[in-house]
Write a protein that binds this DNA or RNA. Structure first.
Lengths: 168, 168
DNA sequence: ATATAATACATTACGTGTTATATAAATAGA
DNA sequence: TCTATTTATATAACACGTAATGTATTATAT
């Protein structure tokens, strides 16, 4: 097996490595979201969570809250509006601003997600992180290894089995 | 200031957060690479480092070593070949494989990068990580804060000043 | 009042990742 | 040997981030 250069490069390629880990995590979270029938990319949920927690926000405020560029948010909003999960009215004082709010469907989706997939993802990821301790690079190595060894979905599944056994 | 939802979501949005941190790190590393006149995106350097360390590799081997999909590597190779940093010959036994190797220019670039920008990036990032300890999320929070507070470039600059002072 | 600057958002163009699939070469089985 | 499968790479289509720029709208200064 060829070696993992990005890992070997250590601090030098830390950016590549973070992106790589992030993509893995998101991809595995996506599996859980899809399984729950939440028909959205994982990347869009922070936006929904922001509106859910903070109430109506302008485009720029969302961008700041989510830590994504404003064009990125605008694009996410196009999709979320098409799916009827958010709406906007441009009628307040400053007509440049476009306040966004969750629709009823959007609120319901957030509630549903929170009870189902979000809880599972949260638990699975927390489970991975639980054991991590010490220097960052070691933690990342352990994290990657765990992700490779058993996916978030697998963790959720085995967790479910555990619970069944416990109940039995 | 609107709050940072991704941070607040904790383990739930860890994927988004890793990607975000990775992008920041890469963007800041890019500044240092550009300053050094290395005319390449930061993301391409792991590929060059792989060839430098491991010698000629096929496309698939590079993909494995770098941890990026094979189509991603093929695209990077197109650019690197155009810039004359790598070359390939398809003449060995198995004519499906396309062994890639550094050109002389490529080797020189790696050497130059290693002595200049890479060393700086390595030092700057290691400097950030030095202080990190404890649970992962705390470390990430500290990491993000540090990145926000002073960029890699700024760290390099102040390091250089330190050295000047030390010499004086 | 009116020209100028700043702000909020949309659009464009681009980089880079992914999956799915096409193609060519090697290998295996009949 | 001829067909089927596997393997290595290329290509296509798409997701999603960015920076740069356009376009209204609002604020400021003369």
């Amino acid at each position: 097996m060829t070696q993992d250069i990005v890992e070997q490069l250590g601090h030098l390629a830390l950016g590549s490595r973070f992106k790589r880990i992030g993509e893995q995590l998101q991809a595995q979270a996506q599996v859980l979201l899809d399984a729950e029938g939440l028909g959205l990319p994982a990347s869009h949920f922070p936006l929904l969570a922001a509106l859910d927690r903070l109430g109506p926000l302008s485009v720029g405020e969302i961008a700041e809250a989510v830590g994504v560029s404003q064009p990125g948010i605008t694009r996410q909003l196009v999709r979320l509006e098409i799916e009827g999960l958010v709406k906007s009215q441009r009628l307040s004082g400053d007509r440049r601003r476009r306040p966004i709010m969750l629709t009823v469907a959007g609120s319901l989706l957030v509630t549903r997600a929170r009870k189902s997939a979000w809880a599972k993802i949260e638990t699975a990821v927390a489970g991975i992180c639980e054991e991590l301790d010490g220097p960052l690079l070691n933690q990342l190595a352990a994290l990657e290894q765990q992700l490779k060894h058993s996916s978030l979905a697998a963790r959720v599944a085995s967790k479910t089995r555990d619970r069944r056994h416990a109940r039995a």
